[in-house]
Design a protein around this nucleic acid. Structure first.
Lengths: 239, 239
DNA sequence: TCAAAAGTGTTACGATTACACCCATGA
DNA sequence: TCATGGGTGTAATCGTAACACTTTTGA
């Protein structure tokens, strides 16, 4: 950090790109926008935009999240910085450095097309590509990160509504990981972790229409899982 | 990512900041440079600099790493992106968005002062602050990340020379974590993880001057640890 | 012969796994 | 009464923690 001459540095555009995930119909979905202009006109891309003069990347990301989803209150949503993509040729016209974020939504509201985006749509993760720019890679990185963080954090509750059943929480893991978990063991594991979930006294809800009503839980105050909840089959990880 | 008018975006300076760690005399050290110019003239700061027009942040970080350490070959060194710091007021003069990296060095070479830095010096982590800009926070974030990654990756070998003993590898963990580990259990754990280390046949080395010569090992090909090597006392983590 | 560091063995405990089994509800 | 999903119990197994003990070197 030296040589601070205002004219010595290259000017860059700085943007944020968002990988906004939710669970719909038992499948991981991601929010995509259709590009209206060149380049990549008509192609799908991750929502995002430029930093305003007084915004940090985090502030800009939360603003974009509100704009693209149409939600009035995004303050409680999980939003985390992923990493920054800065390859010189990632935008064909100019230097654009993009700070990527991942966001998690509990309930899938219909997206509102932004004023400058042709359309916004929830898309199943598996059918999302190919996207504009390097967004395929950003999206893949985001999914990898989310899957990994389920193992050692309480992140899964960010996919759930304020009150949820343990079955729904388990479905979050099973959907994101693409595996099946043993219900009794999952239940014990979650309840044995202090602060992961807390019971809603006396509350119960029918889930599948049939079956025994399930007890309801709220997200607890803990953020980390000790010991972690490991995936049955380590797949994305060299060992 | 829309509204691509070259004059519509705010111009930003983009820099990289490096938290370069090594182990010296049983203590974690970090490479710092003394600022020659205002602001923060005379204060210590993390090494770093601007991205060149055709550089990615990763390329710029590796270039800066070579420049600041004076090493001719930094290709094998561990270098990873941490996160990006973009608070509007983090530099008093202008918008500077900085992509932070953490780097790990096995052997502590004497740093070479860069052409534009007054001085570069290895400093014990515990006596490193207060630094210029938001570098205290970047440094703390870097240390937290490195400590956490020792648990579930093979990162510790990045602190070691090409051939090392298990005692030296254990000291990496003990120094970074600030804990004491049980030697027999550590040994078993490391050797039971395929690809963590591989034995150098027939080689042995005296370590402390006294004592039995220790077998030598090289870093293996694995990058992740399964199951992880957890800290004895979870301190930095809410549970 | 002693201190220091490497290396081996063993036991107790805790967590995870893989099940079997019971409960409550709607069709 | 049956299918469905929620919930409890239990024994085998794996991994870790804690500790005693042996080996090999330099002083």
């Amino acid at each position: 950090m030296h040589g601070y001459d205002k004219y010595a540095f290259e000017p860059f555009a700085v943007t944020v790109d968002l990988a906004v995930f939710t669970l719909r119909a038992g499948a991981l979905h991601v929010l995509l926008v259709e590009r209206a202009q060149e380049p990549y006109a008509g192609r799908w891309a991750l929502p995002g935009g430029f930093l305003l003069p007084t915004e940090s990347a985090e502030t800009a990301a939360r603003r974009e999240l509100a704009e693209e989803t149409g939600l009035t209150d995004v303050s409680g949503l999980h939003l985390e910085q992923l990493r920054t993509y800065s390859e010189p040729d990632r935008d064909p016209r100019m230097r654009v450095v993009s700070v990527a974020f991942a966001a998690l939504l509990p309930d899938p509201p219909e997206p509102r097309a932004g004023t400058d985006a042709a359309e916004a749509r929830w898309t199943p993760y598996d059918t999302a590509g190919p996207l504009a720019f390097d967004h395929d890679r950003i999206l893949a990185d985001a999914r990898t990160r989310i899957g990994a963080k389920l193992e050692y954090t309480c992140l899964a509750t960010a996919f759930c509504p304020p009150e949820f059943t343990l079955g729904e929480l388990q479905q979050v893991y099973e959907t994101v990981w693409g595996t099946v978990l043993d219900r009794p063991n999952f239940r014990r594991k979650v309840l044995a972790t202090p602060g992961f979930v807390e019971a809603v006294p006396g509350a119960a809800r029918l889930t599948g229409g049939r079956g025994k009503p399930a007890a309801l839980y709220r997200a607890g105050t803990a953020t980390a899982l000790h010991p972690p909840l490991l995936r049955p089959t380590p797949e994305g990880r060299p060992a």
